[in-house]
């Protein structure tokens, strides 16, 4: 076998390996009805929390084009966290922490779920001292407005993302 043929085989081999690894970047998997749907968990969720329009009709907070809707606007949420979140008593961690939940057509909220990362998009679990405070304060927020879409009050998913720097909340999104 001459050198050119050998080189060709090696290149072909590398390409095949590359193709196989690319194929693995995507695979057919099962999805819920919608990306990030939150189903009821009897261990952690409020059994008395009711959806008005059923599991298959929960929409997203931006679907009516009005974004986050809260009594006194987002600044009221920021104020609650400024008032009640104590960064002195927490582990000094940094990253993003998302809490996502369902708001029903009456403006009641439940099914809180966390997702978190460090500042480089690596999954990270924040310390309980941070998570517990954020969950407690979020659960106390009572100003969620019932959203209206096409003339009807809807149930919807809302999230809050907390940007943390050494345990301190430096930004609340969206």
């Amino acid at each position: 076998m001459n050198l050119f043929k050998l080189r060709g085989i090696i290149i072909l081999f590398i390409l095949c390996i590359s193709c196989i690894s690319e194929q693995k970047t995507i695979e057919l998997k099962e999805y819920p009805r919608h990306v990030d749907d939150i189903s009821f968990d009897y261990l952690i969720d409020n059994k008395n929390f009711e959806l008005c329009n059923g599991e298959n009709n929960i929409m997203q907070y931006f679907n009516n084009g009005k974004g986050l809707e809260y009594e006194g606007e987002k600044i009221s949420i920021i104020r609650e966290f400024k008032k009640y979140y104590n960064s002195e008593n927490v582990v000094k961690e940094s990253g993003l922490l998302r809490i996502r939940f369902v708001v029903n057509c009456k403006g009641e909220a439940d099914r809180y779920r966390f997702l978190s990362m460090d500042l480089n998009y690596n999954e990270k679990k924040f310390d309980k001292s941070i998570i517990d405070q954020i969950l407690t304060i979020t659960k106390k927020l009572k100003g969620w407005k019932p959203k209206v879409y096409a003339g009807k009050k809807i149930d919807y998913y809302q999230y809050l993302i907390f940007k943390l720097n050494n345990g301190e909340i430096v930004k609340i999104l969206p």
Partner: peptide
């Protein structure tokens, strides 16, 4: 076509809108 960038971007849209940074 595992290198069809447009499909990755389209898939990603729902995740960014739900705040799923990961």
């Amino acid at each position: 076509c595992p290198y069809f960038a447009y499909a990755y971007r389209e898939k990603s849209s729902a995740y960014v809108k739900s705040g799923d940074f990961l």
